Amino acid sequence: MIQRIQTFFLVMVALFAGILPFILNLWVDGEGAEFFAKNELWMSIVFYGSAALALISIFMYKNRQNQFVMNRLNMILNLFLLGFFVYRSLSLSGENTISEKGIGMLIPVFSIVFLVLANRAIKKDEDLVKSVDRLR
């Protein structure tokens, strides 16, 4: 059932993680050079991995428990990325020259929020199926 609300949330995560980090800058260093996710290979892999997990999770709609677990793994991946960004932003603010944090650093936060909303909808569907099974 592709038309469920969690599909919308997971598509948003895939768009946030797969497209936005390569368009929006993550930070600007002291020399004024903008840093995007494509500048480092491992960061590109993590963002693409998050987008791929969201897309894979969309098509696992027949097995809601595996979809739920896949979203949890995606949350852990985004928390790892968020932790790196927090570490990086703390080291940026200690520089002698002025540097800026980009809006792209918030992408993992938005991804985590949409993953939590998707997991709540999946849990709601699972509870509905269990209640219908009880009535039979």
Rank of each mutant, 00 (worst) to 15 (best):
V109Y: 15
N78Y: 01
L115V: 00
A51M: 08
P21F: 00
G30D: 03
F35T: 15
A118C: 00
F68L: 14
D29V: 01
L81R: 02
L90W: 05
I58L: 12
I45T: 14
S91W: 13
L92H: 06
F36C: 00
N74R: 10
N74L: 01
I58T: 00
D127K: 05
W42Y: 11
V129T: 12
I76A: 11
M105E: 08
S91Q: 04
Q6K: 09
L77C: 03
W42A: 15
K101L: 12
M75G: 07
N63K: 12
F84Y: 05
D125C: 02
K101W: 00
I2F: 10
L53M: 12
P108K: 07
I45P: 04
L128A: 09
N119S: 10
G49Y: 01
F68C: 14
G102C: 10
L79C: 15
L90F: 13
F16K: 10
V11C: 15
L79H: 00
N63G: 05
N96G: 05
I76F: 09
G104M: 06
I103V: 15
I76K: 02
F114L: 04
A37D: 07
G83M: 03
F47P: 06
Q6E: 15
I5D: 02
D125S: 08
L24M: 06
V116Y: 01
L79A: 14
L106F: 15
D125Y: 03
M70D: 04
G104H: 06
V13Y: 13
I45Q: 03
T97G: 12
V86C: 08
V132D: 15
L90P: 03
F16R: 06
R64T: 02
A33T: 14
N39H: 12
V13A: 07
D29L: 08
L117K: 14
V46R: 01
R72K: 04
I122F: 05
D127F: 03
L20E: 05
N63I: 12
M60W: 08
Q3F: 00
V132S: 09
M1F: 08
R4W: 00
E31L: 11
G30V: 14
P108I: 11
I45K: 01
A37T: 11
N74C: 06
R136V: 05
F114P: 07
D29I: 06
V11T: 13
L24F: 11
G104L: 02
E34A: 14
D127V: 14
W42D: 15
G30Y: 01
W42Q: 11
F59T: 01
T7N: 11
D133N: 11
R64I: 09
K101Q: 14
V86P: 06
G104S: 09
E95C: 09
G94R: 04
E40G: 07
I56K: 02
E100M: 13
V46G: 06
L82T: 11
I45H: 12
A51T: 02
N74K: 08
F22P: 10
A14M: 13
